Amino acid sequence: MTPNQYTSDRFRLGGDLWVNRLGYGAMHLTGYGMWGPPPDKRNAIQVLRHAVHELGINFIDTADSYGPGDNEEIIRKALHPYPDDLVICTKGGMLRSGELDWIHDAPGAPYIEPLGDPRYLRQQVELSLRRLRVDCIALYQLHSIDPKVPLADTLGELVRLQDQGKIRHIGLSNQPGVSIAQLKDAQETARIVAIENLYNLADRADDDVLTYATENHIAFIPWFPLGHGGLVGPGSALAPIAAQWGITPSQLALAWLLHRSEAILLIPGTTSVPHLTENAGASRVRLNPAEVRAIAEAADRAGLPSWRPVRDAQVAGA
């Protein structure tokens, strides 16, 4: 693939896979509540092809629970046969019970329901291989840590699948994020090359985890890098800050993350080609260390909304 004006600098994932640090999160290319196929399949295909073939994005994040399964299938339909340098990260280990289980205000919804049973994970890996039509998944992440199953048992099965050539690299995700203690525990069983945590300009509670990941050459993948849209919507408090650089609030939020650590891989999601192109423009923004600090300080003064209190309350009530 020939890099173009939107191709960001790169990260060496797992020591052998070079990926552009501004990738794409495909989660929203599904139906309501991340359930079922996308309402407009032609648009979903167009977005994916534009990301990869026009913008030079070569890291796509998905999961078996998005659909379930439909998200992986639309990626296959849009992009298979895949470019040689395309890295698709998928995840497993989270149950779905219907379209309302991921809706924030649905009463009684079991928002997070992990399942780390090794037999279940083996089944899910096989299904992801089939849906994506690949022989080996480049990066497979445990989607959520199951407190009812020893982590060594869960990850041990992924290591066996790795030994069998069905997984290349293993990553770890959790709700709202992987702690340093959990990461160290996981490293006793598997080589963890990536973690996926809630992190954005308004929510920097995991700064210590980011530092640990950076120092140990582990990719840090922020989910909700735009705060579930709350940082960049109409009337965004980021707008006057972004105007100082002549960029949009979403470009500012993403550029800040790219400059926060060289280990960060971004996966902003959208269902719009223009919005996708706007997001990709963040890779052209250049900030010096003083500007990175100033933006964080301005964001703190603006009182930007954090999704973590909502997320924590729902986990506690699950």
Rank of each mutant, 00 (worst) to 15 (best):
E113P: 02
G25V: 06
H228D: 10
E196N: 14
G25E: 00
T214V: 00
G69Q: 13
R293N: 07
Y120A: 10
I221E: 03
Y199D: 03
L13H: 01
G93Q: 10
G33I: 03
P274T: 07
D105F: 15
K166H: 07
L183T: 02
I170T: 04
A219S: 06
Y24C: 03
L258P: 02
G156E: 03
W35C: 09
L86Q: 06
H259P: 01
K77G: 03
D9I: 11
G56L: 11
A316C: 05
W102H: 14
T62Q: 00
D64I: 10
G31L: 07
A194P: 05
L17R: 15
I103N: 07
N174W: 09
A302F: 11
A239H: 10
P268H: 05
L257P: 05
F59Y: 15
V273Q: 01
A263I: 03
N71G: 03
G67I: 09
L132I: 04
R168Q: 09
A242K: 02
G92D: 09
T62Y: 00
P222S: 07
R119S: 08
Y111P: 01
Y111K: 10
D9Q: 14
R12V: 11
S250F: 07
R130K: 15
E297A: 15
G67H: 03
V209K: 01
T271C: 02
L55S: 09
E54C: 14
V315D: 00
K41F: 03
S236Y: 08
R21V: 01
M1R: 14
I170H: 02
E99S: 15
G303I: 12
H217K: 08
V315E: 03
I74D: 10
D40E: 08
Y32L: 11
S283V: 03
L139I: 04
A106G: 13
N174Y: 08
G156A: 06
A239F: 10
R293C: 05
R293F: 05
H259T: 02
S306P: 13
E291R: 14
D312C: 15
D85S: 09
W245V: 09
P268F: 08
G227W: 07
Q187H: 04
L127K: 13
Q314S: 06
A280I: 02
R204S: 04
N71E: 04
Y120R: 11
R122H: 07
S261A: 11
R130A: 14
D84C: 09
M1S: 13
A294K: 14
G165D: 00
Y82I: 10
P147D: 02
L265M: 01
A242F: 03
V178I: 07
A186R: 04
R160T: 11
L258C: 02
T2L: 13
N288H: 15
L266R: 07
I60Y: 05
G227Q: 08
P110H: 01
S65A: 15
A242G: 03
L95T: 12
A316F: 10
R160A: 12
T7L: 02
N71H: 04
D9C: 09
A294W: 12
G67N: 05
V315F: 11
D40M: 00
A138T: 10
D70P: 13
L13I: 00
I137E: 01
I264S: 00
D64Q: 14
L115P: 00
A296C: 13
G177R: 06
S272V: 14
S173R: 06
R204T: 13
L155I: 12
T2D: 13
D61G: 07
N4I: 06
